[in-house]
Write a protein that binds this DNA or RNA. Structure first.
Lengths: 226, 226
DNA sequence: CCTCCACCAGCAGGATCCGCATGGGTGTTC
DNA sequence: GAACACCCATGCGGATCCTGCTGGTGGAGG
């Protein structure tokens, strides 16, 4: 299991890190909130172990709130010397999943961390993509806009899926050929244009705000606003 | 949120139930492990609050183990007078998600219960069906047996999905016609037989243990053992 | 042994889907 | 404003894929 430990106390950090590693987990360590936040946001961890109090501007609660604000649902265990009920409640309310007060027995920390990691949260595959009022359900292979169902052909579906997975980013023709058509060469035709066109016809026809945008000399992009 | 409270101490039970209800949750209460297990297994709760020690044969740990054995992933909070670290570890190891020792502040109980309920566990749609070594991935529309990928046609996929969703149960032809073919009449042909046959050919060919079983004069069933 | 039910291979019709080409439009550059 | 490059839309043809039916065979049950 990949665990991020954010703890400024060098002693505690070493102790916890060592113990978790011996239990077979991979542990990254950050000594302050800023670094911790960066790591947590950029890499995928199974569990975060956060000191409640941290030096610098970003403390544990702040860190969690920021992560949750970004849609990150990674389970968080708070570790803190603050034992007051109010403090614990505050930590949990902020989006924490567990709260353990120092001093603690390592066995309990381990058990709690593993309980958190047991959750399906990490491996939950996205089953539904959304851009503005356009939704794509991977399970039922269904496309809806503003609640109305839209019939889409297989290749169009793959195309749309790829666009939506990169919503807000320009997707080049070469990328599309690779990922949607499995072509590793240039077919010298306008296949892509045609399919984008058909998709546009189905998605944007009858709606005022178009979602699929052409980026001249670059590719296409799907995004809410024009 | 729907919460199941399993607690034999009448005082504690009343106290907790009242508090949770005032916080806007729906609370069911069971006074012993047997009833608790039955409720937990039959109805869908968002969180279980279990006393660690319970009268009768089924105590908290036993209850959780049984539930987990059934594939039930409902988050569990243990409530216990047993404060020893060993006890807590035992509870968490058994499949519990949190452990709170009596006496406790209600505010903390509430915060922890809500933290547990926040998880996406309840609404996670099944994305993968499994029967023995046969797996069906709804997302990628992929069938594998013993790790080997098996190509399947759309109708065959629907048929297999329906069989697997009712694994261990006999599925009648009428049911299949309704659910897989959207026929609401008898086509007077052996369409189903043919498709089942094709499915069999793909799934069971080359494996010693057949999975699709014929139930004469009734229908078909998919199941691990013969 | 007889009967019914289920199985399977082959076939052919059909529908879907997809990619291409063409002609027209729009933005860009000189 | 003319030439050019890029992009858009539509219609068409082909090919694949899929599906349902038929008819003969095998096996279980009575």
């Amino acid at each position: 299991m990949r665990i991020l430990l954010v703890e400024d106390d060098v002693e505690v950090a070493r102790f916890v890190k060592k113990g978790l590693q011996e239990a077979g987990h991979t542990v990254e360590h950050a000594a302050n909130g800023r670094d911790g936040l960066f790591l947590a946001a950029s890499e995928g961890f199974d569990v975060l172990v956060l000191d409640r109090m941290l030096p610098g501007g970003v403390d544990g609660v702040r860190l969690v709130e920021t992560l949750r604000g970004q849609g990150n649902r990674c389970p968080v265990l708070f570790l803190s010397a603050l034992t007051a009920v109010d403090e614990r409640v505050k930590g949990l309310k902020a989006g924490g999943d567990d709260y353990l007060t120092k001093p603690f027995a390592f066995a309990e920390l381990l058990a709690r961390v593993e309980a958190l990691g047991r959750r399906p949260s990490a491996e939950v595959p996205t089953t539904r993509l959304k851009v503005a009022d356009l939704e794509l359900d991977l399970l039922s292979r269904t496309v809806t806009r503003a609640g109305r169902k839209i019939e889409v052909q297989p290749r169009e579906f793959r195309l749309l899926e790829h666009l939506m997975r990169h919503a807000g980013q320009v997707v080049t023709r070469t990328m599309l050929l690779e990922k949607v058509w499995d072509y590793h060469f240039d077919p010298q035709t306008n296949v892509i244009d045609v399919h984008v066109s058909r998709l546009r016809h189905k998605l944007d026809k009858g709606f005022d705000k178009p979602l699929i945008h052409t980026v001249r000399n670059a590719g296409y992009m799907i995004r809410a606003q024009a």
